[in-house]
């Protein structure tokens, strides 16, 4: 069974370690916050200038001056801090954020990522994505393994405009967990429950290494 979005988020949440500062992109990455295991303490960074994102507010807590990078109303936790956008991206480029989780349209076997523009469609802009992928040492991509029309999104080479080169370290899809080495390509680490290695091979266009028994994911 391929994972749903929550399954992908739950599996990524297991990568998280206590003490990390983490930037979550919009979509599945935002869901990861809901599944961080008990006892793991992390600080979430919002690139519009907040460290320590709390839960969504109750109706009487809503503050229009307190939003996340997806422009949703949020709260702050004890120990939160606020800063300007230049400082925020200084934090990101300076390598102070331990983990970046973001969505993608395509990832190549060299770790290139495309996630900001589809030619012929309205361009909305890259926001902070290019700064994040160019700077983070630890980038996990959350995405579907194949597109709705059945085309692999794990490619030899990205076909869409690039967001960043040789930057993705790990990909968690509805079918698999894969490591990315710019020299070797994708390496299959885990299968979604009930998904066969052969199904993953079929769904992966880029170079894929499969070694020994590939375990099923645990959550």
């Amino acid at each position: 069974m391929a994972l749903d979005k929550i399954g992908i988020a739950k599996r990524i949440a297991r990568e998280i370690q206590t003490g990390w500062y983490i930037n979550l992109g919009i979509g599945i990455p935002t869901l990861v916050a809901n599944y961080i295991p008990e006892g793991i303490e992390v600080v979430l960074q919002s690139e519009n200038g907040l460290l320590g994102i709390g839960p969504f507010p109750s109706k009487n807590q809503v503050d229009p001056d307190l939003i996340n990078a997806g422009k949703q109303t949020v709260t702050m936790l004890n120990g939160s801090s606020l800063f300007n956008s230049a400082e925020s991206f200084g934090m990101i480029r300076g390598g102070h954020v331990d983990l970046t989780i973001l969505g993608a349209m395509e990832v190549s076997e060299h770790g290139d990522i495309a996630n900001w523009k589809i030619p012929g469609k309205m361009v909305k802009g890259m926001g902070g994505a290019m700064d994040l992928v160019a700077s983070a040492d630890n980038i996990i991509v959350a995405m579907q393994h194949v597109s709705r029309s059945g085309v692999s999104k794990l490619l030899k080479k990205c076909t869409l405009p690039i967001t960043g080169l040789r930057c993705v370290k790990k990909v968690v899809t509805d079918l698999a967990v894969l490591e990315v080495d710019p020299e070797i390509g994708f390496r299959l680490l885990e299968r979604a429950p009930g998904v066969t290695v052969d199904e993953i091979v079929q769904a992966t266009e880029g170079r894929l290494t499969v070694e020994g028994e590939v375990p099923e994911m645990t959550f």
Binding site: E47, S85, A86, S88, G128, D131, A134, I162, G164
Partner: peptide, 30 residues
Amino acid sequence: LLPQGTLAERIRAGGAGIPGFYTPAGVGTE
């Protein structure tokens, strides 16, 4: 359209009298 951190830093640089700087954001992209 500019990467958000590049936009923020270009503005910061403008105010701080730094005419140019190097950033990794956007390397290899349009």
